[in-house]
Amino acid sequence: MFVTAASFKKTFRRDWRDWITFVLFAGPNLLLFVIFTYYPLIRNFLLSFQEYNPIIDKGEWVGFNNYVDILIQDTQMTRIMQNTLVFTVSVVALILVLGLLTALLLNQKLRFRNGVRSMLFSPAVLAGSAVAVIWLYIFDYRFGLFFQVLKYFGINSPKWLLDPQWAMISLIIVYVWKNLGYATVIYIAGLQAIPADLYEAARVDGAGAWQRFRNVTLPGLSPVTFFLGVTSVLNSFQSFEIINVLTRGGPVNATNVLVYRLYEQGFTEIQNYGRASVVATLLFVIMFILTLIQLRAIERRVSYA
């Protein structure tokens, strides 16, 4: 087999045309990624070492000053990290457990189950800001729905969003309410992808309902659980509008999380771009590490049976 000059020329010309096609087809998307994802990722990192003056659009290098300000000097930072952790862990755990339970429920052959599934999913497509507005009214401690229901049972309503003890719980309720249906839908698809003969085989072996769930359903769902776990962690980390509408990080920072701190530092009166960039870098590093840890964990644990 040898390549003649003519055939080489021909393949080269065809390749060359393919390359142009590729650039035309994928180029615009990639260019936008370079301008609005990769370049800013680097610029953010650089900004975190600068004292930036927006008026003259110039930064002055200040070494690790911003990092010291945020990580060491900022007395609220421990609180904010704790809040972020509490919010993420609670929300993800609740969404996974409740999502699985509702999926098991709706996977049974019940009438209206498709309607209920759609209804459960619907809050996930609604604007987070609008959902937050609904809940702002539900949580109102004088006129709200919860107040009313609790009073009916003779319980004094907490002040929900105004009480540092309850504000975080309120946010968790809203977030889970909005995003539960997504997990349910994914889990239902996961349940339906488990081959029926696996259950049959387990039944023949004399496995009870619990054993079938433990040994067939759960392992069969582990890839889906992994997918949901990763996406839920990343999404909850980015949750902004619910906090912005309901609590603005308050009362007294009780619901302030990393994303919100970033917004506060960069885009409210404070307008300290250097410190905001430190928070953004921190956010990125944490999310990146979380993804890697989950990927590692999954390599060992996930069964693709």
């Binding site: 990639l30 610029r43 900004l47 994303v259 960069g266 953004a280």
Partner: peptide, 23 residues
Amino acid sequence: VFVMLLVALMVPEQVVILPNFLT
């Protein structure tokens, strides 16, 4: 190019929001 895309998938909007505002 595909890897570039995957990495972009992992960069949340919030992380790049400040430089993008400046851009």
